[in-house]
Structure formats: structure tokens, C-alpha cells
Simulated scan of single mutants.
Amino acid sequence: MTKADLSKQPEQVAHMFDEVSTHYDRTNAVMSVGNSWLWRIVTARTVSPREGERVLDLAAGTGTSSAALAKSGAEVVAADFSRGMIAVGAERNKHVPNLEFTWADATALPFEASSFDAVTISFGLRNIVDPATALAEMYRVLKPGGRLVICEFSTPPNRVVRSFYRFYLDKVTPSLVALASSNPAAYSYLSESIIDWPDQPVLAAWMREAGFNQVAYRNLTAGIVAVHRGVKDPAKPTGLTVPVASARIHTATDAD
């Protein structure tokens, strides 16, 4: 069984997700105590795909969110770094005509500049070895005025909720995962990565540094998860030079 660590070496992370791909959706439903469906709905509504648009769903996994986006009539590209996830997703969603699965490295996307109306990534940005470069790539492939939506585990602003959540991750999650997952060791990494991930204002700052404007976020489930959104600014050139390690500071942001 493979367990990645917080160095987030790409091949190691990909192999870990390959191993959990078959039961990934079931385990997520158990770990989120059923909230994952709500987070998907809010994310899809925030993306607001429309017929005729082209949408990139990064870290798409088995394509659960991608299929929901495709119901709008938009052409959806479901991309993931795990070939195991892609294989499972393509098989499960082979009846969806406007949904395409492809392998992709989020830090070097195999797509032309300005080729998508919207880009979204759910619970995947924190697993990328270089989030700054990934954000720069998302900016590059978006059309001017295109939308970015990020759904990710975050930091509950209430101290009591934050303490309870940490207890849940440390003490409760291992027992649940042992019952639901084919690779419990992998999910210990996921808990570690959630705890290590920066809070909502820091991610908002990273998005602004990448060139996005109209950046805002909405807390879900008391801030356990947050949905960030931004728009590609056509007046700014593509590019991102902010080092992730030095960007972990609190800045003011628009919060819903």
C-alpha cells in the first residue's frame, strides 16, 4: 500500500490515488459524513457552466463532479494526474457524450492558452507539489474573463469548530477510513495535507498574485471547506512568481 507524504512528490501522489481509485467516492462520502454531495452542488453552481462553453475540471478523479458539470451542455474535459482515476472515471461515464477524460499534470497543462471558459479543481490543489505553478497554468488556459473555481478543505474560523475538526481528523477519521477504504494508509496523508494547508485568505492572496481579480470565497460546513472564485483579468499578462512558502500570510479578502 502506498502513502504519500507532505513533500507531495508527483509520482508518489499519483500512485497513491491509483490504488484508491476503485473505492474513492465511497470513502469520500464516509469521511465527509455525507457532506460531499453538498460541496459538489455549490461548486457546480459557482462554476455555472453553460451550453457551448468549454470547462476544464482538474483533479477530476473518477469524474463525479465532471459529469454534473456536463449536464449543463458544456463540453467538459476531466483531467487528472492519476491514470487509475481516469480509467475508472472514463468507464463509469462512457455514456456522457460531452465529457472527455485525459491525463494531465496541473503544473504543465497540455492545453493551449485561452482555451477554456472555466477551470475548476476540487480537493486537488493541496495535493500538487507546486500550487503556485498550477495556478499560473490555470490562468494561462483560461480565456480573458474566464472563471476559476477552487473547492478545497480549509480552516474553520471558529476556534471551537476548529478544535473539534482537528479531533475528528486525528481520532475519528482513521477508524472510518479503516472500514471504507482499500488503502487506509493513504488517507492518513490526506488528513495531514488538510492540516498543513493554508487558510482561506492565503489561498485568495495566491489567486490574486496569479493575476485573478474579483477574488472571493464562501465557507461551507463552518469553514471546513471553502469555495474560492476568481476571474482572469484580461489587462494583466499571464505569469506567477510568488513562492508558496513565503505567501502564507493573512490578507484581507472578500468573504461570503
Rank of each mutant, 00 (worst) to 15 (best):
M1I: 11
T2V: 14
K3V: 11
L6W: 08
S7C: 05
S7I: 02
V20D: 04
T27H: 02
N28R: 05
M31S: 04
S32E: 09
W37S: 13
V42P: 00
T43C: 13
A44I: 07
R45F: 05
V47T: 09
S48Y: 01
E51W: 03
E51F: 07
S66L: 06
A70M: 12
K71V: 06
A78V: 01
F81C: 04
R83V: 13
M85S: 10
V88Y: 01
A90E: 15
K94T: 11
K94N: 13
W103F: 15
D105P: 12
T107Y: 08
L109Q: 11
L109F: 11
L109K: 08
T120Q: 03
I121H: 00
G124L: 01
L125I: 15
V129N: 14
V129G: 09
V129W: 10
R140I: 09
P144K: 07
P144V: 05
L148N: 00
S154I: 00
N158H: 14
V160H: 02
R162Q: 13
S163N: 13
R166N: 13
D170Q: 12
P174E: 05
P174G: 12
L176Q: 06
L179I: 15
S182L: 08
S188R: 14
S193L: 06
I194W: 00
I195C: 05
W197T: 02
A204D: 07
A205N: 13
W206E: 07
M207T: 03
M207Q: 07
E209S: 14
F212I: 01
L220Q: 08
T221K: 03
I224V: 15
V225N: 00
K232A: 12
K236E: 07
T238I: 14
T241Y: 04
S246W: 03
R248P: 01
A252M: 10
D254P: 00
D256P: 04
